[in-house]
Design a protein around this nucleic acid. Structure first.
Lengths: 230, 230
DNA sequence: CCGTATTTGTCCGTATGTATG
DNA sequence: ACATACATACGGACAAATACG
């Protein structure tokens, strides 16, 4: 065990405790979600294997997982591509997301704890302040936290993973309307209604509020992408 | 030949992307869903590779996909196991399924076509006849078709894949209460309400009817499995 | 249209880690 | 507890398919 170093690992990758394919799966997912791998781009097995200093086997296994997750597309004998989701597919996915998130709102209304209500309301207030300050990045970050807090209030981890899976597929269509203050005001008004419905523990009202919130977001995406994409 | 694509992304979408790992993924999934591979069982790479007359590489890739789909569980340096979903996890998944299926009912009510309504009603009638005949297998088959028909009426393929993914995870808890006629009568009464709500194109009524149907199924599962599983 | 280079698909060997007597 | 047997983990080699000049 002294000088023998089977995998001394110059390690450009954060060697997690998990297996190599799992680490690669996570790392490649990050590259996709951050947009460093453009949609439609083909992923070269050799290139990624060399970049992560591993062989092609683990890379291929990571690919299979990401295909199943809907982030990559597989074409036999040609390779995998960063999934180029069409506007029609995005609309369909937004609809599913609306149903899931509306359900999350319903469950949150049924199960939210008193302390959480205060946190939810403070998120909305701080987001209003971000709008006044024209702090789009701050709004975006708080927006993610608010949604996470609502999901957490459902006490249903399977619901959370389902929702997250849908979100990831839509990465290409997200955060494009940060710089539209009028959208932000409308969006945060919806947040306020969602939170108050949860606070009132009114399940159906929360369901409807969350449903409309995502469906309106779908409409805003259509405005932005509707003309130039099919 | 008109214009060529610049970078040739997912070119001609191969309707059946058949590669060896994909075939194996499907075959192993069938084995799991049919119960030929008991839950909790460890899957030996060599055994499966020899059984399908391939090497271990494609088998491992198929494993990764099925892990991502939630059908297998992965333990580093030990292998993959047929996922042993706990009752608590099953309850959580049933809740998600309820939200998704309720949403399907809502969309179906909004988009169903006249011809489909007749088919939906005839399914319910034939299922009633199956109950009278004590034909559990026939009821089960029609039940699947009814659910498929409702999902199809949503015109949202992403919703269908999401729902199917949830169903597969619950395979272990399904079709256990076929031999309970009293459950069947209740279940089909719920079907009738679902179909009539869709026929009336009443979105919220359809939402509630479908929601209750799955939640009641969750309750019936709890009755059967509640005592002996945690 | 053909030949060449590149990439994917598959298989196998070796090392490491785990279970077991 | 130790040694042995066995399964997984990863890398690498060869074959097949595709892309390109």
């Amino acid at each position: 065990m002294s000088e023998l170093q089977p995998r001394a690992a110059p390690a450009p990758l954060p060697l997690a405790a998990r297996s190599l394919p799992m680490v690669l799966r996570t790392e490649i997912e990050k590259l996709i979600l951050r947009g460093e791998l453009p949609t439609g781009e083909r992923l070269n097995e050799n290139f990624l294997a060399e970049r992560f200093k591993v062989s092609r086997g683990p890379v291929r296994e990571a690919f299979r997982a990401l295909v199943e997750a809907g982030l990559l597309e597989f074409v036999p004998n040609r390779g995998v591509f960063v999934r180029q989701i069409s506007l029609a597919e995005a609309i369909a996915t937004y609809e599913v997301r609306a149903g899931v998130f509306a359900h999350a709102g319903r469950l949150a209304a049924a199960r939210v704890q008193d302390g959480e209500i205060h946190r939810l309301r403070s998120f909305v207030e701080h987001m209003d302040e971000c709008i006044s300050r024209k702090d789009g990045a701050g709004y975006y970050a708080l927006n993610l936290q608010l949604h996470d807090q609502i999901l957490f209030a459902t006490r249903n981890s399977r619901l959370i993973t389902t929702y997250m899976g849908l979100i990831k597929e839509l990465h290409r269509f997200r955060a494009k309307n940060i710089d539209r203050p009028e959208h932000l005001r409308v969006s945060n008004a919806e947040h306020a209604e969602m939170v108050e419905a949860i606070a009132a523990r009114d399940e159906l009202r929360a369901y409807e509020a969350h449903y409309r919130h995502v469906m309106n977001a779908k409409g805003r995406v259509l405005e932005v992408f509707g003309k130039r994409d099919a």
